[in-house]
């Protein structure tokens, strides 16, 4: 049996014991992430209903450097999960916020914010330096990508139909749904009700990626013997590549990915875990889909490639440090 599970993990894994193990691991990730995801969607819905984009735009300076670097720190005031980022960013760009500012905000805010920092610190209590490496790397990548963007792209890069058609992506579908349910002129109490309603809808938008991510994580844990992972996981470059790929596929929310990364702490190099937690919230399957709904494909691919290279480079350096 033991030999079998090494040589044919897939075959031997289809048995009752592994189904039970799959359930336990899946549920443990979901349960642990749930409070953070709920807080994140509530904050995001609150901001959606109570803070206007005009206000945010007003405080952005015209200077390229002055607008890119603070934009990367805006998440500290504006703690959104990456799942809610793309619709906001598109609206910001439509309202005249420079593309590079929006990009650096979009890349950094899902990571450099109190909720995610707290979740990461929880998950990596034992290795607190990983938390700082994550935040630092995210800051560097977001600023660098934003500045490069200001060099390469002068226009808004928005898709033409995205400008006229204000609900081009499924994820913002609930914004106009809510307007049907609740009246337009809102008192404070109905604004609060609407916030909770929005949060509920956003929970489903994000939650499904979390659950699917947790499922893939649980499957990987069961199917891959650690000994096999260890051989790749400690390689300074290969481990980073594997984790970047993993981050792209699982599309897990930035408030929860730290817990998934923490489950790999014994088998993967620190650089690769940081890469997972930096690249995932910035560019992943679900973000790319939402992005190419709103922006030109050429720009989306450019952005993905730049973020990929910057993260991989930083992670490689961390592994050699």
């Amino acid at each position: 049996m033991n030999e079998l599970s090494v040589f044919a993990p897939v075959l031997s894994s289809v048995n009752w014991d592994n189904v039970v193990n799959f359930k336990i691991i899946l549920l443990s990730i979901v349960l642990e992430a749930l409070p953070f995801v709920l807080i994140s969607v509530l904050v995001s819905a609150f901001l959606h209903n109570f803070v206007s984009e005009d206000f945010i735009r007003k405080i952005i300076p015209k200077n390229r450097l002055l607008s890119t670097v603070p934009a990367a720190l805006l998440g500290l005031l504006f703690p959104v999960c990456d799942c809610g980022m793309v619709p906001i960013v598109r609206r910001l760009v439509m309202k005249g916020v420079p593309l590079h500012t929006a990009v650096s905000f979009m890349l950094a805010a899902p990571i450099i914010n109190p909720v995610v920092a707290a979740a990461t610190a929880f998950a990596f209590r034992a290795n607190i330096d990983i938390v700082f490496l994550r935040l630092g790397t995210a800051f560097f990548v977001a600023c660098a990508a934003g500045l490069l963007c200001s060099v390469f792209f002068k226009s808004s890069e928005l898709k033409k139909d995205a400008v006229s058609h204000s609900h081009s992506c499924g994820c913002c579908g609930h914004h106009h749904e809510t307007e049907d349910v609740f009246p337009r002129k809102l008192s404070l109490s109905s604004k609060l009700l609407r916030t909770i309603y929005d949060a509920g809808n956003e929970f489903f938008e994000m939650g499904k990626y979390l659950v699917v991510g947790a499922m893939m994580g649980a499957l990987v844990q069961i199917l891959l013997p650690r000994a096999l992972l260890l051989s790749v996981g400690q390689h300074p470059l290969l481990s980073v590549g594997v984790m970047l790929l993993f981050a792209f596929v699982v599309s897990v929310c930035s408030a929860a990915d730290a817990f998934i990364a923490a489950s790999f702490i014994t088998s993967f190099s620190p650089g690769s875990l940081v890469a997972f937690m930096v690249f995932g919230p910035m560019i992943d399957l679900k973000n790319i889909l939402m992005l190419q709904h709103s922006f030109r494909l050429r720009f989306v691919l450019w952005l993905a490639a730049v973020v990929f290279s910057l993260t991989a480079g930083a992670a490689y350096l961390i592994n050699h440090f």
Binding site: S5, N15, N21, L224
Partner: peptide
């Protein structure tokens, strides 16, 4: 599924 504990199968994949 029954509320169960991680069983001995996982030791191999965990190491």
């Amino acid at each position: 599924l029954p509320g169960n504990t991680l069983n001995v199968n996982m030791v191999n994949s965990k190491g």
